[in-house]
C-alpha cells in the first residue's frame, strides 16, 4: 500500500522536473520546483510511516519551511526582474546567452 504513495510521489516529482525543464515562464518553473519539493514531502512521510519513526515527518516539516523561504526569495527575485523588464519569462531574459 505504502509503495503506491512512493510511486505517486515519484510521478509528481517527475512531473515537476519535466515542468522545470520544459516550461519557460519563471513563475511556472518555480511552481514546478515547489511541486517537486512537495512530492518529496510525500515520500518522506511515506517512508516515515514505513519505518515507524518520525524522522521523515520532521524533515518534511523543514522542507516546508525551506520551500516557503524559497518562495519568498524567489518571488523577490522574480518580482525584481519583472519590474525591470516587465516579463517573467525565462526566455526573455537572454542577456547572458552569448
Amino acid at each position: 500500500m505504502t509503495t503506491h504513495w512512493l510511486v505517486v510521489s515519484a510521478l509528481l516529482f517527475g512531473v515537476g522536473a519535466v515542468g522545470v525543464l520544459v516550461r519557460r515562464n519563471a513563475i511556472v518553473v518555480f511552481m514546478c520546483v515547489e511541486l517537486m519539493l512537495n512530492a518529496v514531502n510525500l515520500s518522506l512521510v511515506t517512508f516515515s510511516r514505513m519505518h515507524g519513526n518520525l524522522d521523515g515527518v520532521v524533515v518534511a516539516f523543514f522542507v516546508m519551511v525551506v520551500a516557503a523561504a524559497e518562495v519568498v526569495v524567489g518571488l523577490a527575485i522574480i518580482m525584481a526582474i519583472f519590474r525591470s523588464r516587465r516579463s517573467a519569462s525565462v526566455d526573455d531574459a537572454s542577456l547572458l546567452k552569448y
Binding site: F13, V20, V33, M36, V40, S43, F47, D55, V59, V63
Partner: peptide, 16 residues
C-alpha cells in the same frame, strides 16, 4: 531550487 529539490529527493530515498 531545482537542484535542491533533486538533492532533497535523494535525501528522502536515502532515508527510505
Amino acid at each position: 531550487a531545482f537542484v535542491s529539490a533533486i538533492l532533497l529527493y535523494g535525501i528522502a530515498l536515502l532515508y527510505g
